[in-house]
Structure formats: structure tokens, C-alpha cells
């Protein structure tokens, strides 16, 4: 555990809590892509199956359970409790265009051809693109509430901090996970455009982020 890893995990947790509380308090999931949240729930489900096969640490187990619970709680708020506020018209990204290539790639490029490993690889690849329906939705509607952009900022910061963590671990432990690192770089690249807009529009301005 190093400072980049720990702060990355904290940012990830903060992001998920921000989104959950935003929906819970406003009783609305307007502007939120239910598809992205479903994909994240799928990411956690397929990655954390090792909860049943391996014990790593109390921290590891607790965080995995918290992520899983919050992911499914968020999905149920969007699709059940506050589904009337869900903007399915704008959430029109075709997820099969992500799921099919990601599933195919996880069969082709993995560390070992076993069910758990393939599902772990699938989750890593899927996480790198899972935010695309949300970014697509913002592009389509042309705006996002500032609280939604804070969520995206912390979510982007999380994987960016993981990049620093991997550099650190490579130097300290001589260990290099090519699947996670390449996917993490791809994932971070998707946030670059958003980071630019976040700093130039949300933090300097106020209220909603509007696209040009």
C-alpha cells in the first residue's frame, strides 16, 4: 500500500458516494447514465468473485463489499426507486458495442485461460470504457450538473492516481501488470477532455457545465 494507491481508493469511494447521495437527496437521477452504472456493477461483480476464493486483507475485503453494495444500490435507485426521473431517451449509448469487443478481448488476452481469470480480465477492460455511456449522455444533452461533474472528476482522478501507484510499484517491487496498466492508461485518456472542461468551466464558473 502506498499513498497513490490509498488516495486512489479514497477518490473512488468518494466518487461513488457523491453519486449515490446526489440521487438519494434530490430523489432524481436526471443526467445520470443508468447504463454506465449497470456496467460498473458488472465490473465489480466480475472482478470481486475472488472474495469467495482468496483472502487478501480486511481492508481489501471491506472495500470490495462496500463497492459492490453501493454499485447495486445506485443501480436500484436509478432503475427502481427513482426510475421516473431516469432519462432513458438521452441514455442511448449502445452498450453491446462495448460488451462484445471487451468480452472477445478478455478471451484472447488474459493471464490464464480460466473462468475467474477471464472474468477478472473482462472487468479490467470493461472498467476502462464503462464511463462512455455517461460521457456520451453529457455530450448529447450538452450539459451536466456540477455535482455530476464532481463525481466524474473523482472517478477520473482515481484511475489517474492508480497510474502513479503502478509506476511506484514497478520501481519498488519490480512488478508490472500489463493488462491493468494498459487499460488504466486508456481509461484515464477518456477523462482528459472532461478534466479540461472541468477545470476551465466548472471550477472557474458556477452551476452547470455546458458544452460549446
Amino acid at each position: 500500500m502506498n499513498i497513490f494507491r490509498l488516495s486512489g481508493d479514497v477518490c473512488h469511494l468518494v466518487a461513488i458516494i457523491i453519486l449515490f447521495l446526489k440521487i438519494w437527496r434530490s430523489k432524481s437521477c436526471a443526467g445520470i447514465s443508468g447504463k454506465s452504472q449497470l456496467l460498473f456493477a458488472l465490473v465489480f461483480t466480475t472482478r470481486y468473485l475472488d472474495l469467495f476464493t482468496a483472502f487478501i486483507s480486511i481492508y481489501n475485503t471491506v472495500m470490495k463489499v462496500v463497492f459492490l453494495v453501493l454499485a447495486y444500490a445506485t443501480v436500484s435507485l436509478i432503475y427502481f426507486r427513482f426510475r421516473k426521473s431516469y432519462d432513458s431517451e438521452s441514455d442511448s449509448f449502445r452498450v453491446e458495442f462495448l460488451l462484445v469487443p471487451v468480452a472477445g478481448l478478455s478471451f484472447l488476452e488474459n493471464y490464464s485461460f480460466t473462468p475467474l481469470e477471464i472474468l477478472w480480465t473482462f472487468s479490467i477492460y470493461l472498467e476502462s470504457v464503462a464511463i462512455l455511456p455517461q460521457l456520451f449522455m453529457i455530450t448529447k444533452t450538452g450539459e451536466a450538473e456540477s455535482i455530476t461533474t464532481h463525481y466524474l472528476f473523482f472517478l477520473g482522478l482515481y484511475r489517474t492516481l492508480y497510474l502513479a501507484n503502478w509506476v511506484w510499484r514497478y520501481h519498488e517491487e519490480g512488478f508490472f501488470d500489463q493488462i491493468a496498466v494498459v487499460s488504466g492508461v486508456v481509461q484515464t485518456i477518456f477523462y482528459c477532455d472532461f478534466f479540461y472542461l472541468y477545470f476551465t468551466r466548472v471550477l472557474r464558473g458556477s452551476g452547470k457545465m455546458t458544452l460549446p
Binding site: 481508493d9 473512488h12 487478501i56 477478472w120 519490480g174 508490472f176 500489463q178 493488462i179
Partner: peptide, 10 residues
């Protein structure tokens, strides 16, 4: 350099 995966990561 070992190639591998960080199963302790989230």
C-alpha cells in the same frame, strides 16, 4: 521484472 497482476488492488 516480473510480469503479473496485483490481486490486492481494487
Amino acid at each position: 521484472t516480473k510480469l503479473g497482476y496485483y490481486k490486492d488492488e481494487l
